[in-house]
Simulated scan of single mutants.
Amino acid sequence: MRRIAVTAAGTALGVVLLLAAKPHHTVAVPGASSGGSSGTSSGGAAGSGSASGVHTVTGGTVQTQWGPVQLKVTFDGTRITAVDVLQQPNGTPRDEEINAQALPILTQETLAAQSAKIDAVSGATYTSQGYIGSLQSALDAAK
């Protein structure tokens, strides 16, 4: 009888912990207001055009462990229509290989989500964090 009670209590605790866990589908953005970061953001965001119509905003440069990431985001009104990568880590052939795979995926996710709440690309964590950080600074500047 005691074994059943312990098993039931353990199962209940496990369910409570599982339900309390936060989903892991978003990435902490370096330089965000939530505290420490592995990268730092430098420079500001600059924009052109107006809040209505087509305009572009350049996100801040985010320094990652492997190099800077900076984006230029094009809007049609408030809708993101394009993302151009102005700077990316490119010190080694491996950097270029990672970015050739990761950046199109990140851009596709951005256009689908219409926000910086996108998943990181596996194997390109630092590039993903830099991308999301620069994207968020561009979105903030566009407001």
Results as ranks from 00 to 15, higher is better:
residue 66 W to C: 03
residue 69 V to F: 08
residue 90 N to L: 10
residue 87 Q to T: 09
residue 111 L to S: 02
residue 42 S to M: 14
residue 87 Q to H: 10
residue 131 Y to K: 09
residue 48 S to E: 00
residue 32 A to F: 09
residue 18 L to I: 09
residue 23 P to S: 01
residue 25 H to L: 02
residue 122 S to N: 10
residue 130 G to N: 06
residue 54 V to Q: 00
residue 83 V to I: 12
residue 4 I to H: 13
residue 62 V to D: 03
residue 76 D to E: 11
residue 82 A to E: 06
residue 105 I to A: 10
residue 79 R to L: 05
residue 38 S to V: 08
residue 68 P to D: 08
residue 108 Q to C: 04
residue 79 R to N: 03
residue 97 E to N: 11
residue 110 T to E: 00
residue 118 I to G: 00
residue 27 V to A: 03
residue 76 D to T: 10
residue 96 E to A: 14
residue 62 V to G: 04
residue 51 A to T: 07
residue 25 H to D: 01
residue 75 F to R: 03
residue 113 A to Q: 12
residue 71 L to W: 05
residue 11 T to I: 15
residue 73 V to S: 04
residue 54 V to I: 04
residue 104 P to Q: 05
residue 63 Q to T: 10
residue 117 K to A: 11
residue 50 S to P: 00
residue 73 V to N: 02
residue 110 T to D: 00
residue 25 H to E: 00
residue 72 K to S: 09
residue 18 L to M: 07
residue 81 T to C: 01
residue 90 N to H: 15
residue 100 A to K: 15
residue 102 A to P: 04
residue 22 K to E: 02
residue 22 K to R: 11
residue 72 K to M: 05
residue 18 L to H: 06
residue 15 V to H: 07
residue 119 D to K: 09
residue 68 P to R: 06
residue 83 V to A: 08
residue 50 S to W: 01
residue 41 S to F: 08
residue 94 R to L: 14
residue 5 A to I: 13
residue 13 L to I: 15
residue 41 S to P: 02
residue 25 H to W: 10
residue 92 T to F: 11
residue 101 Q to V: 15
residue 105 I to S: 02
residue 115 S to E: 05
residue 116 A to F: 14
residue 27 V to K: 03
residue 73 V to E: 04
residue 82 A to C: 02
residue 85 V to P: 06
residue 53 G to W: 02
residue 44 G to E: 11
residue 64 T to F: 08
residue 112 A to F: 08
residue 106 L to I: 00
residue 93 P to M: 08
residue 65 Q to F: 13
residue 87 Q to K: 11
residue 30 P to G: 07
residue 141 A to Y: 00
residue 69 V to H: 05
residue 20 A to H: 11
residue 82 A to S: 08
residue 102 A to M: 10
residue 77 G to C: 06
residue 129 Q to L: 11
residue 86 L to E: 14
residue 143 K to H: 14
residue 16 V to M: 10
residue 103 L to G: 12
residue 1 M to S: 15
residue 31 G to I: 10
residue 17 L to N: 03
residue 143 K to Y: 09
residue 42 S to K: 14
residue 102 A to N: 11
residue 99 N to K: 12
residue 21 A to C: 05
residue 53 G to E: 01
residue 85 V to I: 12
residue 111 L to Q: 05
residue 30 P to W: 15
residue 91 G to T: 05
residue 29 V to W: 04
residue 141 A to P: 01
residue 126 Y to A: 13
residue 106 L to H: 04
residue 14 G to C: 15
residue 108 Q to G: 06
residue 138 A to I: 03
residue 52 S to R: 03
residue 5 A to Y: 14
residue 27 V to R: 03
residue 78 T to A: 13
residue 22 K to Q: 04
residue 105 I to P: 02
residue 57 V to W: 02
residue 6 V to H: 08
residue 33 S to K: 08
residue 64 T to V: 07
residue 16 V to H: 04
residue 36 G to H: 10
residue 40 T to K: 13
residue 64 T to G: 06
residue 32 A to Q: 09
residue 35 G to A: 07
residue 55 H to T: 01
residue 127 T to N: 12
residue 81 T to Y: 07
residue 3 R to N: 12
residue 118 I to L: 01
residue 55 H to A: 11
residue 52 S to K: 02
residue 34 S to D: 10
residue 44 G to T: 13
residue 130 G to I: 06
residue 41 S to H: 04
residue 101 Q to A: 13
